[in-house]
């Protein structure tokens, strides 16, 4: 089963629930098999199957609830990605791994998913654009905002965490 572990990991991050993630992954494979005729050779298989998983999630009860809370339009204006605006830097050690996971979990769904696709799945901007069905300019601006939001969520957590 291609990409099984990666799809499962992504599904868990989307749903935040292992049982729901299992249902989502299973439904994705069933849909991918049924819809293989709609897959055009020469296009990106990984983006295609992630798109099936994501669309299935978006039409689920949890998905609708997660997306209903965040208006996408406001932050999707195409612009150049913003660099780090604050002089404070965020340095993360291995012991702060868990804080990073908590911060990632707390992000709105559209920030969480784009960070996972870029950093964990190591997708190119082009693949992310195909997976999320958004233009590359939007990929860049959303990614930049997502990183900024993650840093902002993380900073107070790191400040509170004991160092040593």
């Amino acid at each position: 089963m291609p990409l099984f572990d990666q799809l499962y990991n992504f599904a868990c991050w989307l749903t935040k629930d292992r049982t729901e993630a299992e249902d989502l992954v299973q439904e994705t494979y069933v849909k991918a098999l049924r819809g293989f005729t709609s897959f055009q050779s020469g296009t990106n298989f990984r983006a295609w199957i992630y798109r099936i998983l994501r669309n299935t999630f978006l039409t689920s009860r949890t998905g609708l609830k997660a997306t209903a809370m965040v208006p996408l339009d406001a932050e999707d204006a195409d612009e150049l990605p913003a660099g780090p605006e604050t002089p404070e830097t965020v340095f993360i050690s291995n012991s702060e791994h868990q804080l990073l996971q908590e911060a990632l979990e707390a992000l709105p769904i559209h920030f969480r998913e784009i960070l996972l696709l870029c950093e964990t799945e190591e997708m190119s901007y082009q693949e992310i654009s195909e997976t999320l069905s958004i233009p590359i300019g939007t990929v860049m601006s959303r990614l930049s905002r997502a990183r900024k939001a993650l840093r902002e969520t993380l900073q107070p957590k790191l400040a509170r965490a004991p160092h040593g």
Binding site: D5, Y8, N9, C12, H97, T120, E121
Partner: peptide
Amino acid sequence: LQSAGRRYTP
């Protein structure tokens, strides 16, 4: 983030 994102295993 790359390693933090790899959190769940089936």
